[in-house]
Design a protein around this nucleic acid. Structure first.
Lengths: 166, 166
DNA sequence: TTGGAATGTCAACATGGCTGACATAAACTG
DNA sequence: CAGTTTATGTCAGCCATGTTGACATTCCAA
């Protein structure tokens, strides 16, 4: 991280124009990033909030509501509305904690796993295609900039969920 | 990174886990990306839709409503509500077209320019910091992946707005 | 002159953020 | 044990921003 390469750091003197281009690229790319899952979600009457919940429950099965609140950065009322519909529709199962019976541990049902897989499949397809088009070195740079762009709290969250030691 | 295989293309053999990490990085980074402008917008009773309008009007002064609709990808009713408030608040000026009097050409007023500058200043500061932390080569890769991630239509839009030949 | 394009406006609705208030149950603390 | 804190759920309402549908106006162009 941060090693100096002679003659290279001058590229970080960015004009206003270059900076604006970067901002627009982020905006347009994020639209593309969410476009495919959005189409599937729409067919089920769901939104991005449902996608995020499915994603992170799938990622850490048995996570608690409070845990999820921290990751998603929304209010419990907002999350509850989303979880309510997912539970009612049989995509998520909520189990009362054994150690602490106030807690609810969240799991995807088979139905939930099926939708989650469909969503991550189309989204992953686009990400893979972009990675392939840009090449391995570009991907490494992409990840570095994204990580540096996060809020420190989010970055810590992000680092914490990394179990592979990458 | 996990298991190393000979050759360079192995970096594009992504495990499910690596792909999910990339998706999460995009999600968290976008949150960071919008966090600073959001705080300013909130003080004015505006949202991201107002920011986007201000950004693109500033970028191409005199753009028409229809033009803006194409860039932003929303309905005219939705955009109109946003433009209405910006015009009423004296941040945007709408001038009837000379050649085609049905068209409205949009410009930022001094007041509008001031807010736009404040927004792009805080957002640019974060982007700059991320660029600096990641380094020039990472930035080049970042931009390549973002561009590859856009929808083809958006990418064409994006390429078209590039007047500097960057 | 007539059709259609560009724009604006009104109404209604949905999603998903938010706050505030309150209920419940369980865990913790003195 | 009593009181406090924590985790969760729920109700009600507000706001920003997306949607569709309907309709008026203006005016270019065939």
């Amino acid at each position: 991280m941060g090693e100096q390469r002679p003659g290279a750091e001058n590229l970080l003197f960015l004009t206003d124009e270059q900076l604006r281009r970067g901002i627009e690229a982020m905006y347009f790319a994020y639209r593309g990033f969410t476009a495919d899952p959005d189409r599937i979600l729409e067919q089920h009457g769901y939104g991005r909030a449902h996608h995020r919940a499915l994603h992170f429950i799938n990622r850490t099965p048995g996570t608690t509501v409070n845990n999820l609140l921290g990751i998603l950065g929304v209010t419990k009322q907002s999350l509850n509305r989303v979880l309510r519909s997912l539970i009612d529709d049989g995509l998520v199962q909520s189990r009362i904690g054994q150690k602490d019976k106030r807690e609810r541990h969240l799991f995807l049902t088979d139905k939930g796993k099926t939708l989650e897989r469909a969503l991550s499949e189309v989204q992953g397809r686009r990400v893979r295609a972009a990675y392939r088009a840009a090449g391995p070195e570009a991907v490494a740079g992409f990840r570095q900039v994204l990580e540096a762009m996060m809020d420190p709290d989010q970055r810590r969250q992000f680092a914490f969920t990394d179990e592979s030691g990458s």
